[in-house]
């Protein structure tokens, strides 16, 4: 089945009481991604890297860093540079984690970490809670005025507050669902089409054999599309964090 690839298999089972701490394939691939990225950073900064004039790999990492830095600078307004820099490490790490997990998921025979709702929801929910805390820290109880747009007639206010509250809370949910749905749908689609092509190839008929070229070509194109989606979704997640953070810091 095309959904088999999303199955979480415990590699080292571990039960403590009612809790379940197994080392699964999800954690394995997360560790692999992390170690790959740390290795890349190590080679870029320590061994033969860290030069004033960068080589190609160092250039790539610097471009990623610059990209997120510009994103933070442009999206979060009304603060001095030093305060913005306070949020920058968190946003950079989120972006890099998502980007490398998504890209690693594109490699065949591997497991896509971000195609699980639990992981994306944990990420988006913790960030949402953090953003709310930042909002309360900066504005105190005045932060509740976020729920009531200016210039609203008083009779309409209760409904609007309810509506705004719901939409604010659903931001966290939608942030997680967007990423997980995109990754899962893309991977399922590629798997379904390749299964289609494989069945046609196994028919032992020359017409089916030629016909299988159609799905094959579509799978080839979808692979490119999926790579694009993997990069784009990491970007979208990051820019939405920046926008929400901007909303929380600069009340309308």
């Amino acid at each position: 089945s095309p959904l088999d690839q999303f199955e979480i298999v415990p590699l080292i089972p571990m039960h403590i009481g009612n809790f379940y701490f197994s080392f699964t394939n999800s954690s394995l691939f997360m560790l692999l991604t992390l170690s790959f990225f740390l290795l890349l950073i190590h080679f870029v900064t320590k061994k033969g890297g860290g030069n004033l004039v960068p080589n190609a790999w160092q250039s790539l990492v610097e471009l990623l860093y610059d990209f997120v830095l510009n994103l933070v600078k442009e999206q979060i307004g009304g603060l001095s540079g030093n305060v913005k820099q306070m949020f920058f490490p968190c946003i950079l790490v989120t972006f890099l984690f998502l980007l490398f997990c998504n890209l690693q998921g594109m490699i065949p025979y591997s497991f896509t970490v971000t195609s699980h709702f639990l992981i994306t929801l944990a990420l988006s929910f913790s960030i949402f809670i953090g953003i709310t805390i930042v909002g309360f820290q900066r504005h105190g109880l005045h932060f509740f005025s976020f729920l009531l747009p200016a210039g609203v007639p008083l009779p309409l206010a209760p409904f609007l507050v309810l509506l705004e509250l719901i939409s604010y809370c659903f931001r966290a949910l939608s942030l997680g669902i967007r990423l997980f749905a995109n990754m899962m749908a893309g991977h399922s689609l590629v798997k379904i089409l390749s299964g289609f092509a494989w069945t046609m190839l196994c028919m032992n008929d020359i017409f089916y054999f030629i016909g299988a070229l159609g799905p094959l070509f579509i799978v080839l194109a979808l692979t490119g599309l999926e790579l694009g989606v993997a990069i784009l979704q990491a970007y979208v997640f990051t820019i939405l964090i920046c926008i929400y953070l901007n909303d929380a810091i600069n009340l309308h």
């Binding site: 594109m106 490699i107 065949p108 025979y109 590629v190 798997k191 390749s194 299964g195 092509a197 494989w198 094959l216 799978v219 080839l220 692979t223 490119g224 790579l227």
Partner: peptide
Amino acid sequence: YNEEMIVALCFIGFIIFS
């Protein structure tokens, strides 16, 4: 040999092409 093979081939093909 199963459909994952096709995914792998397409991935490698796409990498070479790009």
